[in-house]
Design a protein around this nucleic acid. Structure first.
Lengths: 253, 253
DNA sequence: AGCCCGCCTTGACCTGCATCAAGTTGCGTC
DNA sequence: GACGCAACTTGATGCAGGTCAAGGCGGGCT
């Protein structure tokens, strides 16, 4: 564990308000490690031994079933994942892999469970975090059930623009294949849909998104706070695709 | 509030372990009411003023977007709903309506939030409940993204059979239109798919389901604990369609 | 620099599922 | 028992999106 990492973890909403002693206890059992890109960190179905925290890099949460695979979320620094499985001492519902070289901190699940029973402040933070995660997944499910592919794409593009500060142009934060999987469609379909969306106010040039007619794109996407967020308090709770970079710098790769 | 209702609420996992005084406090602000069938209890987007508990009847949670609608879950006695919105003091993400004449207990959200801050045992229960809800929605999303319509139907039919005790025949606990919406398809498509599933080991006669070839149906559905549940500890956390009745008695209607 | 591999695109095709439009059944009501 | 409504079924049709197959582009490595 590096010196600067402890304060960074401490600043997370999940750990911000807990007692000092509790934090110490948790961090005693912690260990940090750097993993190469493309490594499977967690296999779905395995027992939830550790709460994972992403310090650097990016981690994809995905699910497998019967030779099919789909992306559920991407976790970026500094964020935690699979809190729910740790708490219930239940098998992971999702697998996780690094998208790039990543540094993680791992906390034994048993420690996490022990600490929130003795530190009410930490318990309250866990409640907030879980409630946020729950609402994020509900939003995702709503999008899948209520919107068509094109609408999901348009909403995503607008949401990323909003997260970057209502910019008219930005760089996609993830590979298109991953985006397609997250949005519940094939890469081919995403590619074609992006092309046809040029008639609806957005131009895609490689990884760059240029919103040419925001009103038109908005009319198609019909963004809704109850699907696209954010929650009034603004916390995203880490279960979604990462925010876009404003400048031309490409994340990862 | 009726005399027998307090103990029933107290028996819920969410309230079972809290301090007596906390329970008293919560129940002082509670009020119970009976609603007719088909009444909108909650409109998505409204502020989360009350935690709802279903004492009798059944409540559908559904979502609306742009003249489309989909069922997210059905809550049956004795279960609570929209805990996450209450905790975050955020707008409801889903609407709720009674499916039949139902009796509900309503607890002011502010009381819930206040109590879990002062009663660590209650906080722990809330954590467990939220983690369960989160995992239930993740499962639902996985099913939507990884399985085809036919596979979702087959899985659902097998799951209901399991919940009823591996019976070969049972009555559908909900209307088919609602089931279709829950499974993410149109009623027409459900109707047709059920017909074609007769070649795969299950016969549907009205509301009765008869599994004629469990092996064959299982081969199609490829049930998976990480999608269909249950979690090892068995708690369903109330976010799913209700279990089937074993006997010939029809729920609701 | 050149090569190679993986991501992305494009095309052709086709399946699954939605949509629209009638029926039909079942059930509660009068 | 007849009526009427709502749920369900069935049919015809169309389109969204999946699948399969073949390039093209770009970035990283030797």
């Amino acid at each position: 564990m590096r010196a600067h990492e402890l304060p960074e973890i401490r600043r997370l909403p999940l750990f911000r308000d807990m007692r000092h002693a509790s934090f110490e206890t948790l961090m005693q059992g912690a260990y940090a490690q750097t993993f190469p890109a493309g490594l499977e960190l967690i296999r779905q179905g395995d027992p939830a031994d550790f709460l994972h925290i992403v310090m650097e890099g990016a981690v994809e949460l995905y699910s497998l079933w019967s030779d099919r695979e789909c992306t559920m979320a991407v976790v970026q620094p500094v964020g935690s994942f699979i809190l729910a499985a740790c708490i219930r001492d239940a098998p992971y519902l999702m697998s996780a892999r690094t998208l790039e070289r990543s540094r993680l901190v791992l906390l034994p699940s048993s420690d996490v469970r022990a600490v929130f029973r003795t530190d009410p402040e930490f318990a309250v933070s866990v409640i907030g975090e879980l409630a946020g995660c729950y609402r994020a997944v509900v939003r995702h499910a709503k999008g899948l059930k209520l919107r068509t592919s094109r609408e999901r794409i348009a909403s995503y593009l607008l949401r990323q623009s909003r997260l970057a500060g209502e910019v008219a142009s930005y760089i996609l934060p993830v590979e298109k294949r991953l985006l397609a999987s997250y949005l519940g469609m094939t890469p081919e379909n995403l590619s074609r849909a992006l092309k046809t969306l040029e008639a609806d106010g957005v131009k895609i040039d490689g990884t760059r998104v240029i919103i040419t007619d925001r009103a038109r794109l908005t009319a198609l996407a019909r963004p809704d706070q109850l699907i696209d967020g954010p929650d009034p308090d603004g916390s995203t709770a880490g279960v979604s695709l990462p925010p876009a970079n404003v400048a031309g710098l490409r994340r990862g790769a």
